[in-house]
Amino acid sequence: MADTLTPEKRSWLMSRVRGRDTKPELAVRQTAHAMGLRFRLHRRDLPGRPDLVFPRHRLAIFVHGCFWHRHEGCAKASTPKTRPQFWDAKFAANLRRDREVERQLIEGGWRVGTIWECETKDRRDLEATIAALLVHR
């Protein structure tokens, strides 16, 4: 299916995609707070600026969008039909960066967790995921 938007309109629309304070990230933050957990946001002194940092647990959590970070097996991780070379390079760079940031955090003594966008829809499942990340050592 061809893109129904002009290149200018598509560019404008894509420029509106936010990197922080997204709906999935807010859902994780609200759930963690309701669980009585305290955390820091986007710590600049850590590689990759994790979305949530639990210093007491030495845990850094990233809330990844399924599309941008290629959640394997997820329907939201589809690849656009137009400009496949651009998208393949973009996604490969994102995945390389994710692996490098995770490596740096682990070497720094941190545990790293990822919560996917599609996992933020059900509150009880999200609570269980957060709890599992906190106790898993």
Rank of each mutant, 00 (worst) to 15 (best):
P7R: 13
C118M: 01
T114W: 15
T120D: 03
T129P: 04
T129L: 10
R43P: 01
F62Q: 06
V53R: 06
H33M: 11
V135I: 13
R58E: 10
E102N: 14
G65N: 06
L37N: 00
D122Q: 13
D45V: 07
K9A: 15
A92H: 13
A77N: 04
I61Q: 02
H71W: 12
N94Q: 10
L13M: 13
H57A: 14
I115Q: 00
G19C: 07
L37I: 03
D3S: 12
K121P: 01
T22G: 04
A132C: 14
F39H: 00
G109W: 06
D125R: 15
P7C: 07
V17N: 05
H69L: 09
F39D: 00
H42D: 00
T31N: 06
T120K: 04
M1K: 14
H42Q: 11
F67M: 12
K76Q: 15
E127D: 12
F39R: 01
R103C: 08
T129V: 07
V53Q: 05
A131F: 09
R83S: 15
A77H: 01
E107M: 13
P80C: 08
L41S: 07
S15E: 07
K90S: 08
E117Q: 05
H136P: 05
W87P: 05
R43E: 05
H71N: 11
G36Q: 04
P7M: 07
R20F: 12
W68S: 10
H69T: 09
Q104D: 15
R29F: 10
R111A: 01
D98V: 10
E25R: 01
W87F: 09
R123G: 10
E117R: 02
A27E: 02
I115H: 02
H71E: 12
A34E: 15
F62S: 02
V135H: 13
M14H: 08
L5W: 08
A92I: 05
R18M: 02
R43M: 06
I106Y: 04
G113P: 00
G19H: 08
